[in-house]
């Protein structure tokens, strides 16, 4: 096979422009997924049966069906059901947040249960109400414990973000496909995309690892 990167060099900036979108997409999905996952995890540990039931069923559905199916459903069904003309990017962020919320809620639940029971008892004995106890005492410790897992989830989101190219979001992968179609060469643009993803993922992994080390030292 002859690889000729020379022909796509002029197109590389075009592909690189997708980085910002991919990163934005990942960041938004991570943040919303984390917030939604926190809510779901609080439902899961609550004594309120409908809430635990809801969050368990929810998690089961989102973990039990393919992400691409969820994405397609939300992208195509939202306009029909609500009349709102959802953009591909919005549909992507929305789906990924809902999906990652399901995964993260399990992680956070584990993190909350791993916090020493005495912490909650100390807060209660001071007369601190449940919501404040959770927010100020339990969650900060839980999140600290699961930061490595959260960083991993964020890396997974980044890799999975390529799925949105299917509904036409011009991310890194989509752009490399456009170049491929224009120039009638397929391997080179995709390899460039792969390299870009690899560099970003390695960067994030290194960052997450450094963070983990730092946290270990501080506790």
């Amino acid at each position: 096979m002859n690889l000729d990167f020379g022909r796509i060099i002029p197109n590389i900036p075009f592909i690189l422009q997708g980085i910002l979108l991919t990163l934005q997409f990942t960041a938004l999905s991570t943040i919303f997924g984390f917030l939604w996952g926190t809510v779901l995890s609080l439902f899961k540990i609550s004594n309120i049966t409908p809430l635990t039931w809801f969050s368990n069923v929810y998690t089961s559905i989102f973990r039990g069906t393919p992400l691409l199916v969820q994405l397609s459903l939300i992208y195509y069904a939202t306009p029909q059901l609500t009349g709102y003309n959802i953009s591909p990017l919005e549909a992507g962020v929305f789906t990924f947040s809902l999906n990652s919320g399901a995964y993260i809620s399990e992680t956070i639940r584990g993190g909350i249960l791993a916090v020493d029971r005495g912490q909650g008892e100390a807060a209660k004995s001071l007369g601190v109400p449940y919501s404040m106890m959770m927010w100020d005492v339990i969650l900060p410790q839980a999140v600290k414990n699961i930061l490595p897992a959260l960083a991993n989830e964020s890396i997974n989101l980044l890799k999975d973000s390529t799925l949105v190219s299917v509904i036409g979001v011009t991310d890194i992968l989509r752009r490399s496909q456009i170049v491929a179609a224009e120039k009638f060469i397929y391997f080179e643009p995709i390899l460039v995309a792969a390299l870009i993803y690899y560099v970003i993922v390695m960067g994030l992994t290194t960052g997450a690892y450094a963070l983990e080390r730092k946290l270990q030292r501080s506790s």
Partner: peptide, 9 residues
Amino acid sequence: FQHFHLFPH
């Protein structure tokens, strides 16, 4: 408490 349970953060 026996084990203090100070808030570590």
